[in-house]
Design a protein around this nucleic acid. Structure first.
Lengths: 338, 338
DNA sequence: CTGAAAGCGCTTACAG
DNA sequence: CTGAAAGCGCTTACAG
């Protein structure tokens, strides 16, 4: 005689049917007070935990959502996922995280895997640049909320911000200060709509100001690459007076390298970042950068996903960003002008 | 006539039984070449994805593991989860993350929830200080791997390091430099075995050196708390010449506050951290700290969990830590002695 | 090499 | 208020 399991075991011990056990947990009002109490006690004593797979199969709901991000090894994404996870937990969902790197062009295989593992919806950083995946998600009708970049997508809502406008604000600030020789230090643009938008804004702003195009260097997001970049810029574009970085991480490296090279920031070189990490305000000099609300973005993306999963109309949202002026920017040759 | 779903639909379209469809995916060698090919094509055209819940129910395996951490908002845990996730992904598992804060005494409810959601095993930061949870996991026979702290646990293996020894190395270094008035800036100790071990090491080292006990201040892990702490230490313990921080984050705040207060580091004050975040080397002065291998820890914890889940003997591992000497430490009043 | 059938642990109309 | 039964979509002995 096989050992009974799950509801069957509880039902046997409590002397009721499995239907009643199920109701005691899910529709307590339908079960007589004393019976319900007995069931709950027995279940507790037995260490009963409902089987999630059976439940999911029966209800056709897993309550699992996927968070697809480049990496957890960058504070901005970690914060995003942290807030997202908290929000989803509060709504009764479980978050599985999937780090796929910064290039969104070949992510179908890994994302399919999380859908196969039960993800009913996806929060994804940036736009999906993978046609196979687009098609897959469309036919599966998997709700998707895009974050970080905002676009009035027909396929799915986006809870992000206007990357071009944000970068534009930085450049305009530098132009207004009198800079005419700007360089941009961007992250890898391949399959990354945020970086592409920011680089585009750099070119557009300079063109509009009638200034010759400045160099754009692409580097992966590490301090060391920021350090290396300063060397390259000084060698190839010695007249540069301002370096616009597409990430605080890169800007930190540049700042560090400036110190090493005996360049004063902002007197000899203005430097800007993007993200407004906690460190930005703490550096010497504090970094002028763009503040994005990663926490809020994660929280709202979570809300929208819940709405989509309950069948409601999940609308996108374009969040504001803020240019945070700190001491790493000043007019060119500020020292001479004093 | 109801629309067929899942394997049933594929089977119908391919003109085979559902058993054969299942085999085509899971035991391809058992299916005739041309039949298998046809099934795979049909499945692909139909956008078939196996139902994870049904599979899990039938196989009694979810392939889901939980990562229980304080928060993703701290680089060390984010890195740990990042490495853990990569490792688990490679082994065919999915990671759900759960952030429970720094106090491990009342985490039963949320952790039970992830087990209910299907987690077959848990990676958890620190020891479990919640008796109810201990009991729950034991009766459910849920494999657990503890990280960050190492203890030869009877209940579950630990892939961590010796927090006391690591902190001890820092103190010994400072004592050797001649410091006699040390203060410690720790994280919240409640329900946190790592912090308790480190504070214990601080007291023990001073006692053993025959030095009067230095003050221990507990603060949450933010820059601002590090900044605040310097003020308190200078006010209450003005003779302090070295501040031992239990986290780089706190040390960064202290460093920043020292600059603001016109204190030279290390000449007027030595400061040490813990974690060796990327920033530690980049600061001015660079921070003396303890390097812990968060990536390696995550990866190995993943390996051990896989072993435990496959029924093997998952052994714990005590990883080495390394005292990284940088310019934020020197002998007391180094300036005067020059 | 393939198929019919059982069963994984739940929930929920349906009947009482 | 409670129970018997069906069925969610899989996999796998078993039989052929």
């Amino acid at each position: 005689m096989a050992e009974k399991r799950g509801v069957f075991r509880v039902a046997e011990s409590a002397g009721v049917s499995i239907a009643t056990v199920s109701r005691a947990f899910n529709e307590p009002a339908l079960v007589r007070e004393d019976v319900r109490k007995r069931i709950l006690e027995v279940a507790n004593a037995l260490g009963y935990v409902p089987n999630s797979a059976a439940k999911a199969l029966r209800l056709q709901r897993t309550h699992i959502v996927g968070a697809v991000i480049p990496t957890l090894d960058h504070a901005i994404y970690a914060r995003l996922v942290n807030a997202f996870q908290a929000q989803m937990s509060a709504s009764g969902y479980t978050v599985v995280v999937l780090a796929v790197g910064f290039d969104n062009t070949h992510v179908a295989a890994s994302i399919k895997q999380v859908v196969e593992r039960g993800a009913e919806a996806l929060m994804i950083v940036g736009s999906i640049e993978d046609d196979e995946l687009r098609h897959f998600l469309k036919t599966k009708r998997t709700p998707v909320v895009q974050t970080y970049s905002y676009a009035s997508e027909r396929d799915h809502p986006a809870v992000g911000f206007d990357n071009a406008a944000a970068m534009r604000a930085v450049i305009d600030h530098l132009l207004k200060l009198g800079h005419r020789h700007l360089a941009m230090l961007a992250g890898p643009t391949r399959g990354n709509d945020r970086q592409i938008a920011r680089v585009g804004a750099f070119h557009a702003a300079l063109a509009q100001a009638g200034i010759e195009a400045g160099p754009v260097i692409e580097k992966r997001y590490t301090f060391q690459h920021g350090i290396d970049a300063l060397g390259e810029i000084r060698a190839d574009h010695p007249r540069t007076t301002a370096i616009v970085c597409s990430s605080d991480i890169l800007a930190f490296g540049v700042l560090h390298a400036c110190r090493g090279a005996g360049l004063s920031v902002p007197d000899d070189m203005s430097v800007t970042g993007f993200d407004d990490l906690d460190f930005a305000a703490l550096l010497d000099p504090p970094l002028t950068t763009i503040a994005i609300g990663a926490d809020e973005m994660g929280r709202i993306a979570g809300e929208r996903i819940v709405v989509a999963l309950e069948g409601g109309p999940a609308e996108g949202l374009c969040l504001p960003t803020r240019l945070v002026l700190r001491a790493s920017t000043a007019g060119p040759r500020a020292r001479l002008m004093m």
